[in-house]
């Protein structure tokens, strides 16, 4: 899986399609008019609107056209909003019975893990989720697996070629995690690049972020800080490992 997640790719393709349509109309129109309705400098041309210095010119308008390009873009954005709604709902789903259900009850005899699965839109649904903790601090990330056992969640450190020693968060494929986040000093934001998601960690405030690890998640990917936090902001990195 590349940086683009299926959920992102689906929306992206749809938006690109509409961008091309809108662009083709606007630029086709611009191109045509730029070469069709021209005249040479100094050439005598009919003064259609009676332009005269010091005189407010005749109105040049057409109510039907103006209403048309008020309503058509409006309809387009209504459609785009509708199209974006389900992915949006999945990104910010509730922790109480949303697409990822409730926190896993490990004592339940029927418990078999999150068993997450991806639908055709790229939206991941799960039976239940696990809770982990992420803390931001100038300039490193701390991951805490809380009570989860090592097969579900593991942390460690690793020396990376360019970033030096970075914390590693190892999560299991097919499981869904809810990161509860906080910051010690200033605002940070972990960008889980291959999950296409990020959220600020704000001091004195608890924020949350969904980390659904699908079965085809890349083995190793980067976590970068996306909210400017001072001198070592750009090397405040971590590694996400997806294990089986």
């Amino acid at each position: 899986m590349s940086v683009m997640t299926p959920i992102f790719e689906g929306l992206w393709d749809h938006y690109i399609l509409w961008s091309v349509i809108v662009g083709a109309i606007a630029f086709g129109w611009l191109y045509h008019h730029s070469f069709w309705f021209t005249s040479k400098d100094g050439e005598k041309v009919p003064n259609v609107d009676g332009l005269e210095v010091g005189v407010f010119p005749k109105h040049n308008d057409d109510m039907r056209l103006e209403v048309a390009w008020t309503i058509l873009p409006f309809l387009l954005i209504v459609w785009l909003t509708y199209y974006s709604w389900e992915p949006l709902d999945a990104m910010w789903t509730s922790a109480d019975g949303g697409v990822h259900g409730y926190e896993c009850d490990y004592d339940d005899p029927k418990y078999t893990g999150s068993n997450n699965s991806m639908n055709s839109l790229g939206i991941i649904k799960s039976d239940c989720y696990h809770v982990i903790e992420i803390t931001g601090q100038q300039w490193f990330w701390s991951f805490d697996c809380l009570e989860l056992n090592e097969s579900l969640c593991d942390t460690g450190t690793e020396t990376m070629e360019v970033y030096g020693s970075v914390p590693v968060l190892s999560l299991k494929k097919g499981e869904t995690y809810l990161a509860v986040m906080d910051s010690i000093d200033v605002t940070h934001a972990p960008w889980f690049q291959h999950l296409g998601t990020k959220e600020d960690t704000v001091p004195g405030m608890e924020t949350t972020l969904w980390l659904p690890i699908s079965d085809d998640m890349t083995e190793e990917s980067m976590v970068l800080c996306a909210e400017y936090c001072g001198d070592a902001h750009s090397i405040m990195a971590a590694k996400l490992v997806a294990h089986n």
Binding site: M4, T5, I7, F8, L11, W12, Y15, L80, T81, Y83, S84, P87, L88, A90, M91, W92, A189, W191, G196, T197, K198, E199, A226, E227
Partner: peptide, 13 residues
């Protein structure tokens, strides 16, 4: 592209 949240969480910053 930005108001579409599932894209924005990736594109933001």
């Amino acid at each position: 592209f930005f108001p579409s949240i599932a894209m924005d969480t990736h594109l933001h910053e």
